[in-house]
């Protein structure tokens, strides 16, 4: 927790306090200066700030939605359907988590360019929506907490697979997908596209933050200020997600 409090404190420090010796943890004379100069720093941008905010929110929201939907559907099938190669597929999913993503950049870039999605919203959305982590977590959850008897009962009542998934599986695994919502949003929100977005109209907030923090010591205060602003949306998503996880708990009661 301390480093976070430190970030918040620093963002309110006036310049002389930032450079004071010995350094103080807490702020003495808080100032909004670091925040107030942000519009000035931003005014040199070619596109209004609201556009970056929109891009960030749009990409994060759309990707998170499909991330959860695709991962939970796949997890449901992987844990409850019977087909050849199911175990194989699951092992491939698990092992792919272990391959360090670092060397995958170049092959992925080639695929993006083959698909002609470089410099579009697609390149910021599509790579996120098939999440192995999401499938893995949701599958472990479904297998652990959804008894087959429950699904069979629904089937006898004539529910289709889609209906079983949507009205039985999704409510029971609510704590899992709320948690996934948080993971997905956090990662996608902070993502800085690597050579795949060039148009100023398509850039997101993290890219602007990088530009500001590159300003060095003189901008130490304002770069803390943007860091603090960047923390707010993930924290909001955290609060939504975790307060609902707790709520889900008090209502969930599966009898076996």
């Amino acid at each position: 927790m301390l480093p976070l409090i430190y970030a918040v404190c620093t963002s309110f420090k006036p310049l002389d306090e930032l450079l004071i010796f010995p350094p103080r943890f807490f702020v003495r004379r808080p100032t909004l200066g670091n925040y107030l100069i942000l519009p000035d720093l931003m005014s040199s941008l070619k596109v209004p700030l609201s556009r970056y905010i929109f891009n960030s929110l749009f990409i994060s929201a759309v990707s998170t939605f499909f991330y959860i939907l695709i991962a939970t559907m796949a997890a449901f099938v992987l844990s409850k359907a019977k087909f050849k190669g199911r175990n194989l597929l699951f092992w491939v999913v698990q092992f792919s988590l272990m391959f360090n993503a670092y060397t995958l950049g170049i092959p992925r870039y080639l695929i993006f360019s083959k698909m002609h999605i470089i410099d579009t919203y697609w390149v910021s959305i599509l790579p996120h929506i098939a999440s192995t982590l999401g499938v893995f977590l949701a599958k472990q959850y479904i297998e652990g907490y959804i008894p087959n008897a429950l699904l069979e009962a629904a089937k006898i009542d004539g529910a289709s697979h889609y209906r079983v998934f949507w009205s039985i599986v999704m409510p029971v695994i609510k704590p899992a997908w709320l948690t996934l919502m948080l993971f997905a949003f956090r990662d996608i929100w902070a993502e800085v596209p690597n050579g795949t977005i060039f148009s100023e109209q398509l850039k997101t907030l993290p890219q602007i933050v990088t530009q500001i923090t590159a300003g060095g010591t003189a901008r130490a205060g304002s770069s803390m200020a943007v860091t603090v602003i960047m923390m707010i949306p993930p924290i909001i998503v955290f609060l939504i997600s975790q307060s609902n996880v707790v709520e889900a708990m008090s209502s969930a009661g599966i009898k076996e």
């Binding site: 695709i70 449901f76 992987l78 992925r108 790579p127």
Partner: peptide, 19 residues
């Protein structure tokens, strides 16, 4: 079941397995 797993398999192949 195939319908529900196919989006994952498709994007998983393209963006993870092939790389």
């Amino acid at each position: 079941m195939f319908v529900m797993i196919s989006p994952f398999v498709l994007f998983f192949l393209i963006f993870t397995v092939i790389p």
